[in-house]
């Protein structure tokens, strides 16, 4: 009678296929539902409505920057200044440091252009910028 010695069984590895399935499903879920937009907020506080329309805060002097189109230029006291001209804008900001920087915009100016101007003023040292003023319905 031949002797049958039982061969030592090799350790059965767990199949990786279900693991890969689950990991792929998780990966798909996170890829589709993740958002990479870094949202920030720019405060545009509105003045409380009043019965008599008055120009916002008469005490602080204003430095009015006016956007007439999306051509990358801003108007200040009838001067046309490029939004890229950091040096000139810094000069203007330093001359009016205590003023309220009021932004005005014509109808066809894009929101992005307005934000570019606000960014540039902030970069050049302006502290108080009134962005909400650009959205007033009266003619700029």
């Amino acid at each position: 009678m031949p002797l049958k010695l039982e061969q030592p069984r090799r350790r059965q590895l767990i199949s990786l296929t279900p693991l890969i399935d689950v990991v792929f499903i998780l990966l798909l879920f996170f890829m589709l539902s993740s958002s990479f937009v870094a949202w920030r907020t720019v405060d545009t506080p509105l003045a409380a409505p009043s019965s008599t329309p008055v120009e916002a805060s008469s005490e602080q002097p204003h430095a009015v920057f006016e956007l007439r189109s999306n051509d990358g230029f801003v108007w200040f006291e009838d001067q046309r200044i490029s939004l890229e001209n950091s040096r000139r804008i810094r000069e203007l900001v330093s001359q009016h440091l205590d003023d309220l920087f009021v932004l005005k915009a014509h109808d066809d100016v894009e929101l992005q252009t307005l934000m570019r101007l606000a960014d540039q003023l902030k970069l050049q040292g302006a502290d108080t910028i009134s962005i909400a003023n650009a959205f007033r319905e009266s003619k700029p």
């Binding site: 937009v37 870094a38 949202w39 920030r40 907020t41 720019v42 405060d43 545009t44 506080p45 509105l46 003045a47 409380a48 409505p49 929101l111 934000m115 962005i131 909400a132 959205f135 007033r136 319905e137």
Partner: peptide, 18 residues
């Protein structure tokens, strides 16, 4: 913005992207 102002709300923010 006029509608928000007329409704009496003053705390308004515009969302931007960094």
């Amino acid at each position: 913005f006029s509608a928000i102002r007329r409704s009496g709300l003053t705390k308004v923010s515009v969302a931007t992207q960094l």
